[in-house]
């Protein structure tokens, strides 16, 4: 069981500069737990202490925005591709 994770530039400090890493888990939450063991600090940038996704991060499973498929409970299958992106936003 392996999932490809595309890491945005700002989080590559946690992956030794790698753009793509792989991890395992049957849900997104499990995947981030798994990733944190080999890429320390990555999970904390995406998941809050309360266990929710940060407001200004977008996470996708394949092409689906995970906010619409269960958030961190979104199911993963072998061969899925997860993309983490900064939500480019701002305001006055």
């Amino acid at each position: 069981m392996s999932v490809e994770v595309r890491v945005p530039t700002i989080l590559r400090q946690h992956t030794g500069g790698q753009k793509v890493v792989s991890g395992a888990g049957s849900t997104l939450a499990e995947l981030f737990d798994d990733l944190d063991t080999s890429h320390s600090g990555l999970k904390g940038r995406v998941v809050t202490d309360e266990g929710n996704l940060h407001r200004f991060v977008n996470v996708y499973v394949n092409d689906e925005d995970v906010r619409f498929i269960g958030g961190l409970e979104a199911k993963l299958e072998d061969g899925d591709s997860v993309t983490i992106l900064p939500a480019v936003a701002g305001g006055m």
């Binding site: 977008n58 092409d63 992106l85 939500a87 480019v88 936003a89 701002g90 305001g91």
Partner: peptide
């Protein structure tokens, strides 16, 4: 306020 549309951004 502005925010990229999540689907379009992907």
């Amino acid at each position: 306020f502005y925010e990229f549309d999540a689907e379009e951004w992907k």
